[in-house]
């Protein structure tokens, strides 16, 4: 459905008139993955790892520096942002904070109506019909159309965000942190809604999150990103059952779980700044398994098992590393 090959996005690095050149930031480096139709791919990483930039690049809001994006077999990369967005109309995005993604001066109904109108649906009655249908699908009352964004609760705002995106009938939906900032009970109902919408509309989903427990529950496969690169990608079962990359293992060990862990912290320090990436594997500064060769070159993303790929020299060499967590 969606294939991304060697995708890189850079910021800055330009010389400005009478000013210092902005530092070059490699936000996304050589990312490759494929998502099959109806599949949910989780993209996991900490803040500043480039997961939102990756989403916006795929969406076409930011222009890629290099690499290819193919949507349903057609190449949709190498275009300027306006054309890229038009070519990628089948990919839609649900914002991290859907409340802020709604114009505070517009009623919900008007916003939804406008969304469809922008997409060339000129028949007013058809728009209304589709909006009502979508509101029902996300479990909102049609009376919501008369409300303003600030009158909605956090959970309702997420639902409106989902309805807005789904009304466009996209093939691929990018969900950016769909539950961050929500209370646990609201998060649970939003996750349940996403699951049912996926079944109902057969959506292909890119699920961006920092919350491993949520990703484990929602996704078929998971890619772990550290400083703009995929360090490990595998089916959910394999990733959580036999994590290979030391960073993945650290993330899993750090996630606050309901059962008390005996060795909670396995890595120390903070990620280095993306403007001054360490040479070689970017994780070697914090890695318990780091070797001399790690600083020489970026380790390639190699398959260790059929669908399980890891970018780590140590992980590939030792085939069976004991998993830190038994769950």
């Amino acid at each position: 459905m969606l294939a991304v090959e060697d995708l890189s996005t850079v910021f800055g690095g330009k010389r400005r008139f009478l000013a210092k050149p902005t530092p070059l930031v490699r936000a996304v480096s050589q990312v490759s993955f494929e998502v099959n139709e109806g599949e949910a791919l989780g993209i996991v990483g900490e803040s500043g790892c480039g997961k939102s930039t990756l989403a916006k690049t795929i969406l076409g809001l930011i222009r890629e520096a290099s690499g290819q994006i193919r949507l349903g077999g057609k190449t949709v990369s190498g275009l300027d942002p306006k054309a890229a967005r038009a070519a990628r109309g089948d990919i839609q995005y649900v914002h991290q904070d859907p409340g802020a993604a709604l114009d505070p001066w517009w009623r919900i109904g008007s916003t939804l109506d406008e969304t469809l109108a922008i997409h060339g649906l000129d028949d007013k009655a058809e728009r209304t019909r589709r909006i009502d249908q979508m509101l029902e699908a996300v479990g909102l009352d049609p009376s919501m159309k008369k409300r303003y964004p600030h009158e909605l609760s956090g959970g309702q705002q997420r639902r409106v965000g989902l309805a807005r995106t789904l009304a466009l009938r996209p093939k691929v939906v990018i969900l950016d942190e769909p539950t961050s900032g929500l209370d646990l009970s609201v998060q649970a109902s939003v996750l349940a809604l996403i699951t049912s919408l996926r079944q109902q509309f057969g959506l292909t989903v890119l699920f961006i999150s920092h919350d491993l427990s949520v990703v484990k529950r929602m996704c078929d496969r998971v890619a772990v990103i550290y400083l703009g690169r995929i360090v490990e990608i595998a089916p959910t079962q394999a990733l959580f059952g036999e994590p290979r990359h030391p960073y993945t293992r650290a993330l899993l060990a750090s996630a606050p779980r309901l059962t008390k862990q005996t060795h909670p912290v396995s890595i120390t320090g903070d990620p280095p700044s993306p403007t001054t990436l360490p040479p070689g594997c970017a994780f070697h500064t914090r890695c318990p398994l780091a070797m001399k060769t790690c600083t020489a070159a970026v380790p390639p993303l190699d398959a260790v098992k059929d669908q399980h790929k890891v970018a780590c020299l140590a992980a590939v060499k030792t085939d069976a590393i004991p998993a830190p967590i038994t769950s």
Binding site: L61, Y93, H95, W105
Partner: peptide, 25 residues
Amino acid sequence: ALFVEALEGLNASRTRILFAHVLPN
């Protein structure tokens, strides 16, 4: 603001964004 970004994501025209959304705000 995020809502402007969302409209850009929907490929809304610049005139629409400026006069229907930015101006009231």
